[in-house]
């Protein structure tokens, strides 16, 4: 059993790198996913992953498979989209979902246009689906740095961000932190999607953000417990997914996301906030 669980990591350097990458993603991307979920913007991660694609593709087409160019391209494209969408949300009658949809679709269309100009779709599969088993030093460092920056920024933004999610009108009334929390958070989303696309690809980076958060939400009632549980779920799924990928010889990214999905389904069945809770026999009620 130990052999089965540990030897892939003790014997192979690429598995250790992948493990470190998963830990960093769980620590950085998953807390961001929890706040996305609480803001009812779960699908925004998906939208944003499309929005960063043209930037990454542009970097890729201009400089080849260069980590720096693709990362910077992705971050720039993502930040342009969230800033534009944030501005429209705050200053017009459109809500956050509508303004984001408009800008990410434009960004996606621009991306497809760029790709078709150079027409090397096959290589782009790497961008779309990532490769957690092929993380080089540069990628790993990038993912770890983004996770550190994310934790640091979340610590600074925590109170304003909670208030911005819970009662934005109140925060606007008493302080100037509201835009800082809003834009700061959107930028963290972009950073973590970029970090995720190195490991899992743009499309599946959202999986490790949202699925553990959704599973944890079914169990936890308080925010600290929710964050902690989501991170544990994400890292646990990462480890299990890597082992599954190693032993069953399947791609690692989808394996990790599918294990996240398994945790989610189990939570749906077993958790107090899940499907069955309302159908169990009623327990004796309390006195008050």
């Amino acid at each position: 059993m130990t052999e089965f669980l540990l030897s892939p990591f003790t014997d192979f350097a690429f598995m250790r790198r992948a493990l470190a990458g998963c830990l960093a993603l769980a620590l950085g991307a998953t807390p961001v996913g929890v706040f996305l979920l609480l803001r009812r913007m779960s699908l925004m991660g998906d939208a944003m992953s499309h929005a960063i694609l043209p930037g990454a593709a542009l970097g890729y087409l201009a400089f080849g498979l260069s980590l720096g160019a693709m990362t910077i391209g992705g971050i720039v494209a993502g930040i342009v989209v969230v800033l534009a969408a944030g501005l429209v949300t705050r200053a017009s009658v459109l809500k956050e979902d509508a303004s984001l949809a408009a800008f990410y679709l434009l960004s996606l269309a621009a991306g497809v246009m760029i790709v078709s100009l150079r027409g090397r779709n096959l290589d782009l599969l790497h961008v779309l689906f990532g490769s957690v088993l092929a993380l080089d030093d540069g990628s790993l460092l990038l993912i770890a740095s983004i996770a550190s920056v994310t934790l640091f920024c979340l610590a600074i933004l925590f109170r304003p961000l909670v208030m911005e999610c819970f009662d934005p009108a109140f925060l606007r009334g008493i302080s100037r932190w509201s835009p800082v929390a809003h834009y700061g958070f959107l930028m963290l989303v972009v950073l973590n999607l970029v970090s995720g696309f190195h490991a899992l690809g743009t499309l599946m980076a959202v999986g490790i953000m949202i699925l553990p958060a959704a599973a944890a939400r079914l169990w936890a009632r308080g925010l600290p417990a929710l964050l902690l549980l989501a991170v544990l779920f994400a890292f646990g799924s990462g480890v299990a997914g890597l082992l599954l990928s190693f032993h069953a010889d399947v791609p690692a990214g989808p394996a990790i996301v599918l294990v996240c999905g398994l945790v989610y389904f189990v939570s749906l069945l077993a958790a107090p906030g899940g499907l069955l809770a309302g159908r169990l026999p009623v327990r004796r009620h309390l006195e008050s």
Binding site: C165, F166, D167, A169, F170, G222, L223
Partner: peptide
């Protein structure tokens, strides 16, 4: 108010 009643805060 714009309070989000489902937000997990006490």
């Amino acid at each position: 108010g714009e309070i989000d009643h489902s937000f997990p805060v006490s």
